[in-house]
Design a protein around this nucleic acid. Sequence first.
RNA 1: GCCGGGAUGGCGAAAUUGGUAUACGCAACGGACUUAAAAUCCGUUGGCCGCAAGGCCGUGCGGGUUCGAGUCCCGCUCCCGGUACCA
Length: 871
Amino acid sequence: MLQALMSMAAYPFREIEKKWQTYWESKKTFRTPVDVDTTKPKYYVLDMFPYPSGAGLHVGHPEGYTATDIVARYKRMCGFNVLHPIGWDAFGLPAEQYALRTGTHPRITTERNINRFRQQLQSLGFSYDWDREVDTTDPNYFKWTQWIFLKLLERGLAYEAKVPVWWCEELGTTLANEEVVDGKSDIGGHPCERRMLRQWVLRITHYAERLLEGLDHTDWPQSTKEMQRNWIGRSQGAEIDFAVKGLESPLIRVYTTRPDTIFGATYMVLAPEHPLVEQITTKDQLPEVHHYQLLASRKSDLERTELQKNKTGVFTGAFVMNPATQGEIPIWIADYVLSSYGTGAIMGVPGQDERDWAFAAKYDLPIVRTVQPPADFTGFAYTGDGPAINSGFLNGLSISEAKEKIIEWLEKDGVGTRKVNYKLRDWLFSRQRYWGEPIPVVFEDEQVCSLPENALPITLPELEEFKPSGTPEGPLALAEDWIITTNPDSGKAARRETNTMPQWAGSCWYFLRYIDPHNSECLVDSELEKYWMPVDLYIGGAEHAVLHLLYARFWHMVLYDAGVVSTPEPFAKLVHQGMILGELEYTGWKNHETNQWVSSEYVALGKHIETDVHLEAILIHQDQVIKDGENFVLKDAPHIQLDVRAHKMSKSRGNVINPDDIITQYGADAFRLYEMFMGPLEQVKPWSTRGVHGTFRFLNRVWRLITDQPLSDQEPNRTQLRLLHQCIDRVTSDIEALRMNTAIASLMEFTNAAFKWKELPRKIVEPFLLLLSPFAPHLCEELWEWIGHEESLAYMSWPDVQQEHLKEDMVDLPVQVNGRVRATIRVAMDADQKEVIESALDEPNVVRFLEGKPPKREIYVPGRILNLVSG
RNA sequence: GCCGGGAUGGCGAAAUUGGUAUACGCAACGGACUUAAAAUCCGUUGGCCGCAAGGCCGUGCGGGUUCGAGUCCCGCUCCCGGUACCA
């Protein structure tokens, strides 16, 4: 009964949404034919495709997906050919781990999850072209991922190298850096060791400069470009050779960005792993040096950086000559110097480097300032600019002048060269996993042989078990039948590569496959590629700011060089949607023993900061909370401050919102609308289920507005036309700028106004429904049909703004005296200054504040403001 | 530490880019309808003073530029994200 009444009150969104989803699917409304009319402009709107996890869609997915869907629907109505696809980034660890626990093949799990995701996305009414769905685990897809690998190999961009990886004997597997803590496995706490293993590596460093430079030509968030720049980490400096005392060779080469400070180099440090350590260390120092090397090798990268405050090192007993001063300086080894950057050796310049200062201070090494700090400088190492001192022929020069001069000198003397360095490392591309793309090579007599294109795809063998193989080769090593093969080129016996590709591989190029998803001849037809690329708008999470977006750009540049694609950069414009947090929470802290509240200013990490007593966090309803100055406090106990915060959604916190529940209760349209209405797309914002209720209410109002009475066939009046065209104007520019929140506000304002009209002209309602349709497509399709249309509105023309309707004849003009509003007067929009001032001076309040005197100065901005300045 | 982004009502947020600060929505309060509740509709809502007209204060803090500053400039504070021995 209650249910019946409620559904009577609300518009029948369940039936409507189901009806239109079925309609779009059966009519293939959003199919983009392969043979589109390429004389029309194109728009490629891309979502970061999801990893189909077992947990299903979370509320973060539809945020970006709704934004792109609105743009796609809008662009279609503007006459563009729109490419708006979706797919699945389905290789990855969770399915493999699930397989380990349950014995279910990852293929089964993946398929199940994909079906769930597809159904969820369809229930949101997204206008994807489902005929172009891609799945990275589909052999017809990863055939081309493997093909690209062959291209990389062919171009010398993939190579094998022995690189250190964490190996856990007990677990019989290699582990990622993050899985190893304190030299022990994160799971189980088994001892791990660094092993040098043969791994595939991609030469992304070859593209460092171009990856950096290409950023200048993209419309991407500043922060993301900056993160990529930092990741690539270009620096300019010099490499300098130091001669070891008493040895003809070898020379020790250091890299520095501050060659100008060489006169202050009072010692040298090698990384503990530096290959020359063994050779130069004196007999006396050898035991100590070996001990230090051993300790350093056990530390994980994380630990090495965590211990940065406390520098350690050991003297090798050897000395080098400083080429500038001709003085002897000692050689140390210390783990604050990384073997993987620069040359793995530095010159220690404590006067101008904070780390070197700390090291020198600890081990009592000499400190020489080579840049004059300002008089008021009170710190230790001085890294700022200033004139060079204690630096011979460099004295008096600024840093940049001194750098130039010293590099010239080094190069002339043959002891150094100008050098650019990058932090970017080559990309470790092997994984010892089952659920990934097999690497398309075989080994014949230990020699790598790439497989011919017609051997692709190399599919995964069926395994009974997914346990680690117990050797560093990964689970595929157990598939003996699969491993043993012949090299198709030579016909001789060969073994397959048992490592697989990392999860990033499939997502590096998926946007290309959407263009031509069923092509069995090539990765993508080049004519189609030329038409559709680059991606015009790419929306996805900021968590991919570096890795995915850098790897994809790298592969794309390689494909560009190989002539497969026509643009060097794949994504013209990129936007990150902000994370959606849980509902705002008010938390009070209570001492469990005494049952008394503790004000939040005394709480840190769930404990009382003075007594260290563990406190209980209690969620408090908003009604019990009041704001007192800066703080929120308990209404009944105003001296008790509360914590107010929206937290990241998490299972453990219990604040996860399931999209399915919201759709069931309010419908997809209200859900979409709410996610867009919350605030600016890029911003982090807290969820509010009451807010969904608000957009749901709005949609109900629209429903009633149009269904409660028949439309009028009368010509709209001037006000109606003005409000409509203002709405068209704002919604159009807001969608273009992805300001969905203010577009919706405009649509609401229009609806509020229309509710007050006695008659509703058809000529107003029709454009309004078109404006609303990208946001709430189901409702608008239904109402479009209701008012007498037989065809979907998906391809109706987007309404045009007519400038003449935007103008208002009369405005309420604020009149200021000395910059403060004292009256508003109703004047013609284009009234001239003289008459505006005259009518302003009729206002008693204006006269009062002018104290009867004529204004000294008048500023008039027609339609905006009149400001009178008194004497 | 460094890089990037922020700070506006009880809450999410607007502000035509220097021109009436708080649009739109949520919450709250008052009213209508109802046996009642839900739903819906109407109204009020930054603070202080005032019967009112109106006034004063107000966009994290302190200065400045300007007829006029949320917006521009200088100096801070705090919050969020990223990153960190990269020589």
